[in-house]
Design a protein around this nucleic acid. Sequence first.
RNA 1: GCCAAGGUGGCAGAGUUCGGUCAGACGCAGCGGCCUGCAGAGCCGCCCAACGCCGGUUCAAAUCCGGCCCUUGGCUCCA
Length: 502
Amino acid sequence: MTLSVTDTLRDERVEFTVDGDEVTLYVCGLTVSDDPHLGHARLWVHADVLHRWLEHLGYDVRHVENVTDVNEKIAARVGEREAWTAERDVAETFTAEIFESMRGLNLRRAEVYPRVSGHVPEIIDLVESLVAAGYAYESNGSVYFDVTAFEDYGALSNQEIAELEAQGEPDERAEKRHPADFALWKAGGVSEAAVREHRKHDHEGDLPEGETWESPWGEGRPGWHVECSAMSMTHLGDTLDVHMGGRDLVFPHHENEIAQSEAATGETFARYWLHAGLLSMEGEKMSSSIGNFWTVPDALEELGVNVLRTFYAGAAYRSEQALTDETIAEAEERWDRLSRTHDRAVAALDSVDAHAKASDEALRSAVETTRADFTAAMNDDLNVREATAALLELTDAVNRHLDAAEDTSDGVAYDYRGLRRAVETFEDLGEAVLGLRFDAAGADAGDGDVELAGELVELVLELREAAREAGEYERADELRDALEDVGVTVEDGPEGPTYRFE
RNA sequence: GCCAAGGUGGCAGAGUUCGGUCAGACGCAGCGGCCUGCAGAGCCGCCCAACGCCGGUUCAAAUCCGGCCCUUGGCUCCA
């Protein structure tokens, strides 16, 4: 059973194969001009799950994700805050936020997070080689890619060059030979028009022009698509295995990347193109420019990493996904169910009753079924919803076993091996592959204070038990409600009450 | 206008690559039962109910082909 993925260029499901055991993965990262939002996080999480699944399959994953820190939108915000005196100040602010968000989302680290500002020489080299090879031409200090010179232009997005509308601003159109030609290098600084378009505040004084660099064509800035080609080829070589990005980047961004990369090297740029569907909110895509977004730090604060990742695991990477109160609620329920069952099984394993030699064939076969189903689902184009469903089906078997084991009149009889295999399955697949953190359910509350909080909760529960034994249920319910108000859920069971921090 | 991705039950969302094993995945919501002082969790059971529309191919179509309608995305910075 091997992994298959949906490749945009070939427009079909294809078997995933590489020579050797190393996979190079390039994720089209974002432009650091604003807070990262849940749409960005969706791509991140799916790329992360791919990364984790490839590791699970035994591959050594070389993951590179760019940070575009040179862009008109970034330059346009200079002056908006006191500390933002230059383009790079704005970029640094949001770059730091991205890394913090990524940590919060429990993403595997990439090997390199290259920035445009650190790769201008490589970009200039690439542009020079394209000019030398006849694929690009200089015009008034800018350099444009000649789309008519590249035979396969339009293959990724099925565009006909003749149909393409002019790209870019009117004043630069005059510099182009064909309206679909795109800029590799732009003379001068950021235009006044661009700054005004992307401004989010009334600016006092001079308009920012952004950073510029010396080049063979004079002072200027890199074009809008070359950075990904230059950076991915610098760090991963002329041909990379997987190029992943949002579906909204297929055209023109990725189309142009293919053109400029393959024109320069004569080699296939990316062997597999994976595109993640967009996250919609109220019927349209979540987007910084539309303003209908929820930032990653805010969502992490409100929902926690596990609910967020369970939410993302609720839809295949290539589908669109809707963010609504209901879909979030569903994710919360799914995560709670997984987490509760996992914790319950761990508690059983830790209990003194776990030595019993019971054997539950239904549980043991459910574990094997789950592992097989999970693997099949993931290999089937990373079907994370079905994979999650497999884990959820295991919760049935685990709970059934625990219910039965705890119900015996002559002592508790757990199937120690079966339970251990079940817990390992939750952890090998849920944690290592889906990136969930069962251990973090309580730790979300804080750090060393958790222990003290637990002791205090137990103190209250002792008081409540005393009230219950005395038949003072009103008092007992008051205590339970009071705990609920501070985020502690109390559940009574045959072994006494248990509690969870929510 | 051009290109792309989609339209499956009350919601959400698999299944379409390779037509039959698929129409009722998993979950949420709803109903009943067990358990419980109650609640929650858990377990058991149940109701209801969908393949956008129209044709075509086939013994057989959610799946293939054609046409149409609609939604979203792209064609301008965008994950």
